[in-house]
Amino acid sequence: MVDIRWGVLGAARIARKAVVPAIRRSGAGEVVAVSSASGRAAEFAADLGIERHYASHEELLADPDVDAVYVPLPNTEHARWSIAAARAGKHVLCEKPIVQGLAELDAVEAAAADAGVQLAEAFMYRHHPQLARLRELLDSGAIGRLVTVESSFHFVQGRQEPLDIRLRRDLGGGALNDIGCYPVDLLGWLTGSEPDDVGVVAHRDVPDGANTRVAIAARYGELTANLHCSLDAAFRADARLHGSEGTIHLPDAFRADVRGGTARIVVERGEERTVVEVDGDQYGAQVAHFAERVRTGTPDPDDAALTRRTAATLERITKAASL
């Protein structure tokens, strides 16, 4: 087995708390380097026991001992550094949303194809086995014909100083890009399509600031959907799928890791209510899947197609509400 040597572009909290530990416990390789333009790389490396640290991303990308990179930079920097990494011959796992629109996605995919490297968007929830179980339930007719979907992702974002990047519009911040992309991605996965119709309303705490609440109404063929996200409501990350004969509730749709990896699937038909628990390590499965792609040189066209649907839909929502 080839041991993948990882570099991390940016000393982000998600890398420290979730992705670096996932790489180590899943057998997805070894984290050998980290870079930070803000001067935090040395501390990050020391805290996590990483051998090398660089004061610039260019230095890390020039390291011949790095095979793949994880990119948890601000949203507006994702395309730029994914392209740079690909051109440096590094495989790229980039945080969601991987791009700010289809033009950027075209450029990123072209760079990866030209360099012959693997490229993936880090939507970790896609890799939890609850989705496979959900598909089995839907295909078996557990709730009849799927009619409408409600999905929400909320949490209370503290207003730290200096301003958190989640609230910086100039860095691609806002509720939609940070967490609203999850319900959008889920609908793209469920339907295999982009919406036919979209209506959007949004709220900003300050004029011309980042969106802090977004509500989306969408139609995918005969299926309707209501999607919500906010940075100022109590935590919730769920989905309800309403069918002609029942309902499936996913209370842990996107953050099963909060419950130690256990996701609940609640099926209701009339007076009957069944709870199925599905265990999984979505961060570990995500990096393990990517590492296997790197080792075998095997692309994942279904995953890439979902990334494109989500990018197209997010771009459409952004334009509709001038976000």
Rank of each mutant, 00 (worst) to 15 (best):
A11L: 12
A15M: 06
A15G: 13
P21W: 08
P21C: 02
I23D: 02
R25Q: 04
S26G: 04
S26A: 14
G29K: 13
V31N: 12
V32H: 13
A42I: 01
A42K: 01
E51C: 08
Y54S: 08
S56V: 04
L60N: 01
A62K: 11
D63L: 15
V66N: 13
D67T: 15
D67N: 15
E77K: 13
R80H: 12
W81K: 12
A85P: 07
I98V: 14
I98R: 07
G101R: 00
Q118V: 01
Q118I: 07
L119W: 02
H128L: 04
P129W: 05
R133F: 09
R135K: 10
D139M: 01
D139V: 05
S140Y: 11
G141H: 09
R145M: 12
R145G: 01
F153I: 07
H154C: 00
H154Q: 03
Q160G: 01
I165N: 13
L171S: 10
G172W: 05
I179T: 14
G188F: 07
V198S: 06
G199P: 04
V201W: 04
D205S: 09
D208E: 15
G209C: 03
A210H: 07
Y220T: 09
L223Y: 06
S230Y: 09
A233L: 12
A233T: 11
F235N: 03
L241Y: 13
S244T: 12
E245K: 15
I248M: 10
H249C: 15
H249W: 12
F254D: 04
R255W: 13
A256E: 05
D257K: 06
D257F: 03
V258H: 02
V258K: 04
T262I: 15
G270A: 04
E271T: 15
E272Y: 03
R273L: 14
E277C: 09
Q282S: 14
Q286N: 02
A288D: 14
R293F: 03
V294C: 03
T296L: 04
T298C: 03
P299G: 02
A304K: 00
T307N: 07
T307F: 01
R308L: 00
A311L: 09
R316E: 14
A321W: 14
